[in-house]
Amino acid sequence: MEQLFFILLALLTLSAALMVVTTRNLLHAAFWLILVFFGIAGFFILLHAEFLAVVQVLIYIGAISTLIIFAIMLTRRIMDPQQPRFNSQWGLVGGLAALLFVVLAAVTTRVAWPTTSATLPAEPIKQLGADFVGVYAVPFEVASVLLVVAMIGAIIIARERG
């Protein structure tokens, strides 16, 4: 049952991902990308990471996709369907990407990953919250400063003239 669900979801996600990189219309690519994000949220649920699934929907779909769609709309001439979507070496690049996949897949099946017998933590969210102000306090604060700096930087760069 779970395996069947995995396969279906994987097919959906990967074909949507292929559409993202091949669709001529960029805006359609962005909406395919949203479908990929949903698929990945589904995998997170399969992995019992509900919090990450919700965060995925919230940040990737709510924020990043919106940003990308805005970028596409604000730079509208690029929508011109007459333009080629790929650069000239796309055939070579496609071969490289396939090779990359083969190598990575070989690696993931060759390496003996250490498997665990531990059980799921009872309240992962509570533990995660405590970790963020405990072990991960410094990265957490750095992430917050990073967001502020990114916001200031984005405003400096994209603000209207005058």
Partner: peptide, 27 residues
């Protein structure tokens, strides 16, 4: 899962290297 991730990574890499538009590369 790992093979799935590898496939997704390779597809993304293809998008980065083959696409002409900067927004598409970001995707």
């Amino acid at each position: 899962y790992l093979v799935l991730a590898a496939a997704l990574f390779a597809i993304g890499m293809f998008g980065v290297l083959a696409r002409k538009n900067a927004v598409a590369v970001l995707m």
